[in-house]
Design a protein around this nucleic acid. Structure first.
Lengths: 148, 148
DNA sequence: GCAATATGCTTGCATCCGCAAGCATATTGC
DNA sequence: GCAATATGCTTGCGGATGCAAGCATATTGC
């Protein structure tokens, strides 16, 4: 009845919803980026060469390839991203973070960290936050886009 | 730079994405319910009287009121839900779980618990799962739709 | 009592996203 | 080498959802 895994699953999903809703509003207002777009830029920023193919990006963001295509286009027009092709494989179309994009994502990261701080600070001690980080690490450790 | 709250925020959101994607597929195939619909039924099942107003349901599910309207209609047609009105306030339109709906949600809950078990069992010991539950409890404790 | 405001619900519109199909290029089997 | 298959990307379509507007009912201020 009160299965522990069921409970954790529900709590995890509900917590994520609450966090996302809380962050989304003011975050986009400040930097002109949605949380999804911010995650895309973060992935590139933490990759050597600041470039990834679109399918790789899709895997890391847990979205479809078409979503990556549609997310990248407007950000290219804003100058945050560039498109590059591979000389050896003409199918590949890399998404590359520009200098402008890097500046923007670092500013956004500061805001994000501050907001995250508010969310966690009132509920958990630093020690408990470390515990939580260790437990959640198991989940993201085996996926390539851990972002930490 | 490596702010602990930022890390936890990212890990929590990424974990939720991974879990949701993993559960969504086979879950809907077995019971004909999306995860969102299952959550809606769960909320009603754990409420005394098995009925909630639409705005209250919207708050607990972290969705808009219009989404509740559009989610409830097809489930009424399937006989899982009924609509009731309040004799004292004609604006209210309660969403009520039927006996059929209760049977269905309990079956679905079994499947959900089994899937959740697979997700957690391989990564965490029972003791660690208890730790995680305690930590996440802080997040959902103050919201009315804790579902636990 | 009546106007002004608030609340609950629904609907039109825009947006986001996944799926499937289509196209281009690469790799494999013969 | 060439056909068959696989891979990467884009686009059309449909589903889901939030926002703002609209409608019905309740409450408040006078």
């Amino acid at each position: 009845m009160n299965d522990i895994a069921l409970t954790n699953c529900l709590r995890l999903l509900q917590s994520a919803e609450a966090i996302k809703n809380r962050l989304a509003g003011e975050f986009s207002a400040v930097h002109g980026l949605s949380v999804s777009e911010f995650f895309l830029l973060m992935q590139l920023d933490q990759t050597t060469g600041r470039r990834l193919s679109r399918v790789e990006l899709a895997k890391r963001l847990h979205v479809s390839a078409s979503t990556v295509t549609r997310m990248a286009t407007p950000m290219e027009k804003l100058g945050l991203l560039t498109r590059e092709s591979d000389s050896r494989d003409a199918r590949l179309a890399f998404v590359v973070l520009t200098d402008t994009g890097q500046t923007r994502v670092q500013e956004a990261r500061t805001t994000f960290a501050k907001q995250a701080g508010y969310v966690f600070r009132d509920r958990w001690t630093p020690k408990e936050q470390d515990q939580l980080a260790a437990l959640l690490h198991r989940f993201v450790a085996d996926s390539p886009g851990s972002l930490t």
